[in-house]
């Protein structure tokens, strides 16, 4: 599927970041409710029904759309909580609901035909058959692509499907296929699919030991830092482990995704929307990143070259290491 101007989809963890993202040039913002129905169920984040209604008014007044993530898997015997979240999103005038669970998709498809359905990355639909199945059964209009596909594979996929695609370009990077990872619940009892959290902060400890600090999750040592070394958050799949006689960042280095250099390639591959991760991020960060990506996307749309795009996005690394992830085939 080919597209016109690419849409920039930006994170809004709070009403304040929603306004910041809209003002910085987001074509759409995505957010969730303050409960386990969304995959960023962190303390101090997210929206009540009233806040969402207000946020939708603000966004629409400024020409932006609001996409509501109800993208965890409904708990058995509690499916109504997820259905009610979808009803509230629809009542608030959300432009789309981002969902992964068949129970949620089915409810929205049957009861809120005016609301677009976007298939969440948590559904891990990476083939024409899987995407076609969701399109046929629930009328999804867009799929958020799992982070396993290279740019060439995305181009081939877009030729084979007739729904829009949305690709992550910046922010946190899951190494595992999202929606199919239970590492967090294995260690902590809480998981992205069930609780909307990964490596939850209440299970984290930083233990000062002779000559080092250990970052632990639920008692499991995830990384260890020398004195003076910056200490990272012990996200399970970014830890340092021993395997096969080697000590390494086995799954992934502590890097974040930056596919800014691939915007033109993603456009050529037929991608409709570019997504920035980071609903847990503050207003200042969101403003800066959205502004830079707004400029970069506009430059690509006007035929800007790679050097210009690199210059616009320079400085969006926070001093941390970055990767283009699976978009580059060598990542695998």
């Amino acid at each position: 599927m080919t597209s016109g101007r690419m849409e920039l989809v930006c994170p809004a963890g709070t009403p304040a970041t929603l306004r910041a993202a809209v003002q910085a040039g987001a074509d759409a913002v995505y957010c969730g409710f303050r409960d386990e129905t969304n995959a960023r169920n962190f303390p101090g984040l997210n929206f009540s029904g009233e806040e969402l209604a207000e946020g939708v008014r603000f966004a629409h007044d400024h020409g932006s759309k609001v996409l509501v993530a109800i993208n965890t898997f409904a708990r058995v015997n509690d499916v109504d909580l997820w259905k009610k979240a979808a009803d509230t999103a629809a009542e608030c005038g959300a432009n789309a609901i981002i969902a992964a669970d068949i129970a949620v998709l089915d409810h929205v498809a049957k009861n809120h035909k005016q609301v677009r359905l976007h298939l969440s990355v948590q559904a891990a639909a990476a083939t024409p058959e899987a995407i076609g199945f969701y399109a046929t059964n629930f009328g999804i209009r867009r799929v958020v692509l799992p982070r396993v596909l290279s740019v060439q594979e995305i181009a081939a996929l877009n030729r084979a499907i007739d729904v829009e695609t949305e690709a992550f370009v910046f922010g946190g990077l899951c190494v595992m296929i999202e929606g199919r990872c239970y590492l967090s619940s294995y260690a902590t009892g809480k998981s992205p699919n069930l609780n909307g959290v990964c490596s939850p902060p209440e299970m984290v400890s930083y233990d000062d030991e002779p000559n080092s600090t250990a970052a632990r999750l639920s008692g499991y040592t995830i990384d260890r830092y020398e004195p003076g070394e910056p200490v990272g958050y012990p996200t399970l799949c970014k830890g340092k482990f021993k395997a096969g006689g080697k000590t390494s960042y086995l799954f992934e280095d502590p890097v974040s995704l930056n596919a800014g250099g691939m915007i033109a390639g993603l456009k050529a591959a037929g991608v409709t929307a570019l997504k920035i991760e980071g609903r847990q991020r503050g207003k200042g960060y969101v403003t800066e990143v959205v502004r830079a990506f707004r400029k970069a996307v506009d430059a690509v749309e006007q035929g800007g070259d790679a050097i210009e795009i690199d210059r616009i996005l320079a400085g969006q690394s926070e001093g941390s290491r970055q990767t283009a992830g699976a978009y580059s085939k060598k990542w695998r």
Partner: peptide, 27 residues
């Protein structure tokens, strides 16, 4: 074990394996 198989198999008997996200009675 992946939704990819559903269009080819829908209507004929199958097992959903632990890789397929069936988390609740509605799914």
């Amino acid at each position: 074990n992946d939704v990819t198989a559903l269009p080819s198999r829908s209507g004929k008997p199958f097992v959903t394996g632990p890789f397929l996200n069936v988390y609740n009675e509605a799914a």
